[in-house]
């Protein structure tokens, strides 16, 4: 622990590590958003893993040891696996190149550039208050103490939120709710016979595909 702290606070080493991790995070994030070599969502997910892991390195440099571990466990371990699982389940083909909407491209780049400009102007013109020598340690014991004293109500509410999310996901992905929705939609809309038959045909084939992948 002592050696780790001395490594993190040694000015030259920590500065080099900061620039290394920051560059790696930004490059991987750029490759998530726009990869010139591949349009496959799996590639984006893999670069998202790399960006998240190097961001855990940035958390380590900020002495947030517990959050770095949680970041790797939850994001790289659970969220990305969920993403990859859905990508494989949906069997999305490589994205076809479509005509780029020039107005959308221009508007997107313009708005993002203005937002970056606003952020940097805020950063440079308002005084950033920071302690003279930061000495806080985000280890598990101090964070847990705070979590079970001052933040105990939000902590319990988050557990309720997880329960609600779990029930919601189970309801959304169960077969019963799907057939009920399609039955009610076809029952109340008699005028769209051709469309609804085409729509009700597609769920059957996709469920057949999903049950095949499950087995």
């Amino acid at each position: 622990m002592e050696s780790l702290n001395s490594l993190l606070d040694g000015t030259v080493v920590s500065t080099c590590l900061f620039y290394l991790f920051a560059t790696f995070t930004l490059v991987c994030a750029a490759l998530v958003v726009a990869n010139p070599f591949s349009r496959n969502p799996v590639t984006s997910a893999m670069f998202l893993v790399l960006a998240i892991i190097s961001m855990a390195g940035l958390f380590l440099l900020l002495h947030a040891f517990f959050l770095a571990a949680v970041q790797i466990l939850v994001y790289a371990g659970a969220v990305i696996v969920l993403f990859l699982f859905v990508i494989m389940l949906l069997e999305i083909k490589e994205e076809l190149r479509r005509r780029i909407n020039l107005f959308g491209l221009f508007a997107g780049i313009l708005s993002v550039g203005l937002i970056v400009r606003l952020f940097l102007a805020c950063l440079h013109q308002s005084p950033v208050t920071s302690a003279a020598n930061p000495s806080i340690e985000g280890d598990t014991a101090s964070l847990g103490k705070l979590l079970f004293t001052q933040f105990v109500l939000p902590f319990e509410l988050v557990s309720v939120l997880l329960l609600v999310a779990m029930v919601g996901v189970i309801y959304l992905s169960s077969k019963d709710s799907k057939s009920r929705i399609s039955a009610s939609s076809s029952g109340t809309e008699p005028g769209v016979g051709k469309e609804s038959s085409a729509v009700s045909q597609s769920p059957n084939t996709s469920t057949a595909a999903s049950t095949q992948t499950k087995h």
Binding site: V32, A45, V112, V116
Partner: peptide, 23 residues
């Protein structure tokens, strides 16, 4: 800030639902 801008750019410009979610 730069990371946020990259994510926003992805949400605005990409048209794949899953990539938008990753951004």
């Amino acid at each position: 800030f730069l990371l946020f801008a990259l994510g926003l750019l992805g949400v605005i410009m990409r048209r794949n639902l899953l990539v938008i979610y990753m951004s």
